[in-house]
Each structure stands twice: as structure tokens, then as C-alpha cells.
Amino acid sequence: MIRSFGARALIVLALLVVAGASPLFAQAKPAAAPAAAAKAQAPVFLTSCGQSPGAVTVGVFLRRLQIDYDLKETGTVKDLAAKPYKTIIIVTGSSLKGMGGAGVSIDDELARAGALIAEAKKRGIEVIGAHVEGMERRAKNAAPGDNSDEMSIDAVCPKAKMLIVRKDGDEDGRFTTLGKKFGIPVVFYAKSLELNGVIKDLFGK
């Protein structure tokens, strides 16, 4: 026990000094978390390879996030050259009804996608591939003998800089394997509405 008054006073004074100085030792409050580093930039050229409704799905979120984009479902190299696009998103998955309505065949779509990718690379436009409709838009669930979904995936995904895929469309590991084989990062998401978050992160919103 400390008997002397002087010693006690010293201890109290020391405690007061420590208490008063403690803010100086406190960790600095973290600054507001910076927006995730953007990996893609607008304006965006959004198109489909196969004329499935997937491109519209992506467009819904681009619009809601106020990211400058143009949806050109049958867009050509000429359309790509019309504006200084920074990113092209090609949504894979085919629809016989969509192609019929657009008056195109799967061969037309594959050729168009190939030309767009080549032109994008020439112009330094980032190519992003996407498959957003799950197993409904894979050959397994198409009419017997219809392999156009897989053809559109093969035409686009191996040549993309990154892939955005709804997880249930990778039930057979198709996109995981593709990503590993070609060294392409694949961003998976579980529920359709989560695509909003994926696009938000991608564009640093």
C-alpha cells in the first residue's frame, strides 16, 4: 500500500496524464472505405451472342446504376466504331425465338460476335463475357439437338478479359473450367438480383 501522499498524488497525476494523452495513442479512425477499384469503364457497348433475353437483363442493372451504355442486340462492328466505348459486354446464351425474330441464325451470331471481339481488341475496348440465365440457357435444357447455347459460349468466353456468370449456369463446371484453362477471372453470383452488386463493383459505383 502506498502510504506517502506525494506518491499517491504522483500516481493520480500520472493516471490523469495518461487518460488525457490517450487520444493521441488511439488508432486513427479509418477513413471512409474507398469505392472498390473499378475494373471496367463506361461507355459500355452491350450486345448478345444468340439473341437470348440476357442482354436486356444486364441492361436493366446498367440503367439502374446510371452507367452509360447502349444496348445493341444485333450490334455490328460499325455500331462499335460509332462511339468511344471503353467496354463491350457480350451476353451469351441463345434463343431460337430471339434469333428468328431478328432474322439471324446462330452462325450469323457467332460471326458477328467474333468480328466485334476482334474490333474491340484492336481498339483497346475491354471485352467482358456474361452468362446470366443459368441452366435454362444451356444446351442441356434446349430442344433436343440444339447446341446453340454452347456455341455462343465458346465463341465469346475464351476471348474475354473476364466473365460474369450466374452460379447455377455453372452446374457442370463449364465456366470454372473455361476460366482456369484460359486464365480468365470468373465472377459468380447466386441470385439474379445480385447482378446489381456485381456490376456496381465492376464499374466502381
Binding site: V56, T57, K191, S192, L193, L195
Partner: peptide, 9 residues
């Protein structure tokens, strides 16, 4: 499209 995604989710 949004209705379909919301209902599906």
C-alpha cells in the same frame, strides 16, 4: 425482366 428476377429470387 426485373419482375422475373425478383420473383425467381
Amino acid at each position: 425482366t426485373l419482375v422475373s428476377m425478383t420473383l425467381t429470387d
